Simulated scan of single mutants.
Amino acid sequence: MKTHTLVALLLGLIITLVNSTLSTAQEINDYRLATEDQISVTVFNEPDLNLVEVRISASGTISMPLLGQVSIADLTVTEVENKLTKLLLQGYLKKPNLTVTINEYRPFYIGGEVREPGSYPFRQGLTVQKAIAIAGGFTERASKSAISMVNEKEERNIQQAKLVDGVMPGDVITISESFF
């Protein structure tokens, strides 16, 4: 009986982790660019048009050779590629072929009862537990179950977070103080 219970618990944990990883992977594919993200634009056979490690400005734009300021905030990588291709087709290039890559995501933020609160670079596969470790771990006063997370897009939607929950760029994690 105990073996069956242990196997069932392990299977449940594995399914939870797989579902969490799959939803985070989908969120990265649907990721919308914003201020503080750093990208590169490679225009094949046109090295003068390439951008290497450019940060998206506070106004949500990048400065492209020939095109000037191009607004790319709140677009996915695919949408940016399509937009730049269309703009380059307007009298600049006959068959533009380009790729956009994200070099660095905007940071996530962690505060409250962690040893080193602050902003940290986002990495794919980041969970609340990993974010806490990056911030030096819990303080002695931390409540390990009272963790809240606010998604950048849903600023007013504070949700209770679990250690296995995925973290996205711009998210704000707060570790509450334990009262016991």
Rank of each mutant, 00 (worst) to 15 (best):
V77M: 11
Q69E: 15
T76Y: 14
A73W: 08
G111L: 14
G91W: 13
I72D: 07
P121S: 15
S71D: 12
L88N: 01
Q124S: 14
V77R: 08
T76C: 13
Q69C: 13
K86V: 15
R123C: 12
R106D: 00
L93V: 03
G125T: 13
P96F: 04
L89P: 10
G118R: 05
P107L: 09
Y92M: 04
L98M: 05
V114T: 07
L89F: 06
Y92L: 04
K83P: 08
E104K: 04
N97L: 01
R123N: 12
T101S: 13
L98K: 00
T127A: 09
Y109H: 08
E116P: 09
Y105H: 07
S119G: 08
L98N: 00
E113M: 08
K86N: 15
G91H: 14
L84T: 05
V128W: 03
T127C: 11
S71I: 14
E104S: 10
Q124K: 12
F122T: 05
G68V: 06
L67M: 11
Y105N: 07
K86A: 15
L88E: 02
K83W: 13
T99V: 10
E116A: 15
L67V: 12
I102D: 06
I102M: 04
L98R: 00
R115M: 10
T76V: 13
N97C: 01
V100A: 06
T78C: 05
G91R: 12
I110A: 00
K83I: 14
L89K: 09
R106Q: 06
G68K: 08
Q69L: 14
T76H: 09
T99F: 04
P96S: 05
Y109A: 01
E79C: 12
T78N: 08
L87K: 02
T85A: 01
L126A: 05
K86Q: 15
S71A: 15
G112R: 01
Y92P: 08
E116S: 15
Q69P: 14
V70C: 07
L67N: 10
V114P: 03
Q90L: 09
K94D: 11
Y92S: 09
V70I: 13
L87M: 12
Q124G: 13
N103W: 05
L126Q: 07
I102S: 11
E104F: 02
T76E: 11
T101Y: 02
T78F: 01
T127N: 10
R115Q: 11
S71K: 15
N103Q: 10
E116V: 10
R115K: 07
L126T: 08
E79H: 13
T99S: 07
Q124C: 09
Q90T: 10
Q69W: 00
E79S: 13
Y92C: 07
N97S: 09
T101N: 09
G125R: 08
K94H: 02
E104L: 02
T99K: 02
V100D: 01
V77G: 13
T99H: 00
L87P: 02
S71P: 06
P96E: 03
T101K: 06
G118N: 07
A73V: 12
E113K: 04
S71C: 13
Q69G: 15
I110L: 05
K95A: 15
L84N: 01
Y92V: 05
Y109T: 02
G111D: 14
N97Y: 03
G118D: 10
R106V: 06
